[in-house]
Each structure stands twice: as C-alpha cells, then as structure tokens.
Design a protein around this nucleic acid. Sequence first.
DNA 1: TGAAATGTTGGGGCG
DNA 2: ACGCCCCAACATTTC
Length: 442
Amino acid sequence: MDSLIVFWFRRDLRTHDNTGLYHALKAAQEEGLRVMPLFIFDRTILDKLDDKRDRRVEFIHHALGEMQQDFTASHSSLLVRYGFPLEVWQELLQEYRIKAVFTNHDYEPYAKQRDEAVSTLLSAQGVSLHTFKDTVIFEKSEVLTAEERPYSVFTPYSRKWKAQLTDIHTSSYPVSEHRSAFWQPLQTPSMPTLEEMGFQKVGEPFPSKEVRADIVRSYNQTRDFPAQQGTTRLSVHLRFGTVSVRELVRTALELNETWLNELIWRDFYMQILWHFPHVEHSAFKPAYDHIPWRHDELDFERWCKGLTGYPIVDAGMRELNATGFMHNRVRMIVASFLTKHLLLDWRWGERYFAQKLLDFDLAANNGGWQWAAGTGCDAAPYFRIFNPASQTEKFDPKLEYIKRWVPELNSFDYPQPIVDHKFARERALSTYKQALKPFATE
DNA sequence: TGAAATGTTGGGGCG
DNA sequence: ACGCCCCAACATTTC
C-alpha cells in the first residue's frame, strides 16, 4: 500500500486557490505521493444542534457535493467521514498509510483545542502535520502596532493592514497543474447523506454570482438599505471557505474601498479573539461586566420571535428566523434594541444569533455584539442608542423591508410596543452610567 | 456605523 | 423704519 498525504478540509471548502491544498499537492508531486482529500462531519458540533433542519449542515453538504464533482473529474474522490475528529483520525491511521497531513489554520477556541489533540495523535504516530494561513489575509500577530502589540482600535489597524498589503498577500494558489497528484481510489467512497446524519433539507437564499460585482461596485451607496440587494451575502461563503478571501480582496481593491473595509473587519475581530480570548465569555472592557442586565425571559422571547411591537426590529428577527440571514444594518438595530431598550445581556443575543445565523462566525459575531452593547474594543459609546423610528425613516422610508416581514403591520394582530422608547432610552442611560461610575477615569 | 437637548442665526409677521 | 417675537433651520453639545 502506497503511503498518502492527507489534506483535511475544514473552513476552506473549495479546490481552487486553497493554500494548504496547494502545498499538499506540491509536496506530493515532489515526493511521488498522492493526496487524499478529507472532510469530517464533526459530531462534537452536530450533536449539539437540536434543529435537524440546519442550513449550515446543508450548506456544507452542498459544498462537499460540488467539490466531489471536481475530484471525480480528476479521477479522485473526497473522503467524507462522520464522527468525532480524534476517533476518525485514529481509524484513518489504521486504514491508510499516512505520511503527512496538510491543513489550513482554524482560529476559534474549539478548533484550536481540536487541532492540538489531533496534532498530538499524529506526532505520536510519526506523522508530520503541516498547517497554513488561508482564511484571512493577515492572521494573529501579522498586523501589530509600533510597540509590537495587537491593535484594539479598528481605524489604525486597518491603516496598518492596508500599508502592509502587497500582491503576494492576494495572489492565488492554483491547484490545476497538480491535479494528477490526487489520490485515485479503486472505489469511490460514499458520502453520508443528510438523512443518514439525521438532517433534513431546507433551502438557501443567495444572490447569483453574476450580480455580486455590481453589488460591490455600489456597496457604499446601497449597503444600508435592507429592502435592496445591497450587500453581497458572501459572509456565508467566507464562513465555510467556498470563496477565497484573496480573490475578494483583489475585487475590493479594484471596485470599492468601503467593501474592502468589511473584509478587514473580519481579520480585525479574528485577531481580537486570538489575543483577548476572554471576550468569548465576558466584556472586552471589564468595567462593563458590572452592568445589571435584566433577566426577563419573556422580553427575550418576544425579541427572538419578532414580537416587540417595533416593526424594524421585528422584521429583522423574522428575517433571521425564516432565512438564517439578517441584513447588517438591521443586525445593529436589533442588537441595540436588545441591549439598550430591553437591557438584556448581550450574550443572550449573541447566543441566539449563533444558533440561527448561517454565516455565524464566533469572532465576528462576538465583536459585533460587544460593539452594539458598548462593552467591546472600539465599541459604540454606551449612550449611542439607536432609535428604531429614525432608523426606519433613514433606511427603510417606504417600509418595504418591514412590510416584507411584518405583513400584519397595520392590523390589530400586530402587538403594541413592549417598552416605551423614551422610557427605555433613559433607563439604559442611567443604568449604564450608574454601573460604570466606580470605574470612571477622572 | 446615533439621537436628543441646547444654542445660534436669520427671515418674516406685526405693532 | 424699527424693535420685538416666533420659529424654522442649522450647528454644537451632551448623553
């Protein structure tokens, strides 16, 4: 039995412009070996999902199907397993002669821990592990201040990010010339179906690839109007790596600076989570952990279901519940409403988004919530409270977005506001002020 | 990537 | 013509 190099796909579900895959194929060619592509459906994650119609699982499954077609064309095949990663790796080491494993970096806390365990197992078996940067442009400690410290403010971070960017950072890692190095199994291994894993199909809401360039071109003009197709909805593709961030940056440099900044925010929050891991469970600024959040389960439930009586908030939550997506402008509005108007813990909202968002990314979601709650690095000051009515006036003046998701708007079925705006605003201001008083700098 | 409160200015009605 | 008041409209400050 010939020995193999394994390439392990995780958040990089594409065969084009994939750093780790490129290096795996190159190494294989140099050493006269083959590359076996692998994906593991991770039960550590899947077992926690109580809704078995999960769009994320379906999205992954679909992306794997597309890759499988590609591998088939190269007379190869993707090996897909379902189980706990460490156990799967133990099995694979028994079943195949594995010389080396290649994979791309995954920065989330769980992923870090998973990869350390696998790395220990592999090295105990004398298998080398090679890992690469792929899902971001600059990772962890590649963008630092003059004092070599991580940034915690976006604007100077982005300035440095842009200053450091060269063609090298956005150039592709083509795999086409190395296709012959793919593993060629005698029999195509079967991929578990969604049903076999206990999941059902749902459906997916994306704009076509063709309209994306137009959206990027006018992004700075249209991005704030949720009734329009003004955002690319590429976040889910970035989440699972079905697009290359390097390609997107090239597009952004060419077409739209504002849109480039959105990509830089991704890198920014990734390095925040890496260097300040406490943000996963507590406020970036410790003083803000003293805010006495209300523990009102009923208000929280009304927020979740889109029954607050504030149309723009309810529209956003209903869009999320129905599609697994919410327009970014509306994410800010509903987050401000939860934390300021309802004075509910930002972590409740963060957790709900984590359950529902197709594009859920721990670093970005946490960063966004802490921004809205005012608890984060470079956050909105706590007294910046969105007024749902004026936000509607500015960004959905014809109520197009609202009516799409709240059709009963003008009927008796639509609830009264669960809290008065003026009262809620003043309550938030005084509560934050009181809680932060002992920590005031002067 | 706010909104509300407060301050300032200037045109027009009116005695 | 003049002073006074009202109040948009805009600017600044405050939360």
